[in-house]
Amino acid sequence: MVIKKFMHITKELVEHLAKLALLELTEEEVTRYTRELDSLIGYFEKLNELNTTHIEPTYQVVPEAIVFREDSVQESFKREEWLKVVPQQEEGAIKVPKIIDVG
């Protein structure tokens, strides 16, 4: 495993991340986040002091295995009720600006 030490967060990377996360950022925000992320990541690389080669990662702290539900249909919430929170809808369908990019 290659540990990238002293990673530098560049403006381009921040812009790429903003694109992935679908966040519209102002020029000022891009500058700010470049600086802040660079400083934070720099500090977080403290973890590289530890050798973790044979350590299993922990993703959850609950010791049990998964719990199931049985396959039965439960009454869901009233469509009319939840459609009230939808910003735009037409005849029960959620309306969004036309999807041009397919994917």
């Binding site: 037409e90 029960g92 369908a93 959620i94 309306k95 969004v96 600006p97 036309k98 999807i99």
Partner: peptide
Amino acid sequence: NIHGTVSSYVNL
């Protein structure tokens, strides 16, 4: 997704 002329519609 169902595509209309100016909007798209989502059925979940």
